Amino acid sequence: MSGANPVAQALVETWAIGARITRYLLDGIPAAALDAAPAGKGRTVRDLFAHLHDVRLMWLKAARPDLMEGLAKVGSGSTVDHAALATALDASAAALAVLVADSAAGDGRVKGFKPHVTAFVGYLLSHEAHHRGQVALAARLAGLPLDKKVSYGMWEWGVR
Results as ranks from 00 to 15, higher is better:
residue 58 M to A: 03
residue 63 A to D: 06
residue 67 L to H: 05
residue 67 L to Q: 09
residue 69 E to N: 01
residue 77 G to M: 03
residue 77 G to A: 02
residue 78 S to Q: 02
residue 78 S to W: 00
residue 79 T to M: 01
residue 79 T to P: 00
residue 79 T to Y: 01
residue 82 H to Y: 07
residue 83 A to G: 02
residue 83 A to T: 13
residue 85 L to M: 03
residue 87 T to W: 02
residue 89 L to H: 11
residue 89 L to F: 03
residue 90 D to L: 03
residue 90 D to Q: 12
residue 91 A to V: 03
residue 91 A to F: 04
residue 94 A to E: 10
residue 95 A to H: 04
residue 96 L to C: 00
residue 97 A to K: 07
residue 98 V to G: 03
residue 99 L to P: 09
residue 101 A to R: 14
residue 103 S to M: 05
residue 103 S to E: 04
residue 104 A to T: 10
residue 107 D to G: 12
residue 110 V to G: 10
residue 111 K to V: 09
residue 111 K to L: 07
residue 113 F to D: 11
residue 116 H to M: 13
residue 120 F to C: 06
residue 122 G to P: 02
residue 123 Y to R: 03
residue 129 A to E: 04
residue 131 H to F: 07
residue 133 G to W: 11
residue 138 A to G: 12
residue 139 A to H: 04
residue 139 A to Q: 09
residue 140 R to C: 02
residue 141 L to D: 13
residue 141 L to F: 11
residue 146 L to E: 14
residue 149 K to W: 01
residue 151 S to Q: 15
residue 152 Y to A: 13
residue 152 Y to K: 11
residue 152 Y to R: 15
residue 153 G to K: 14
residue 154 M to G: 09
residue 154 M to W: 14
residue 155 W to H: 15
residue 156 E to V: 12
residue 157 W to S: 10
residue 158 G to D: 15
residue 159 V to T: 12
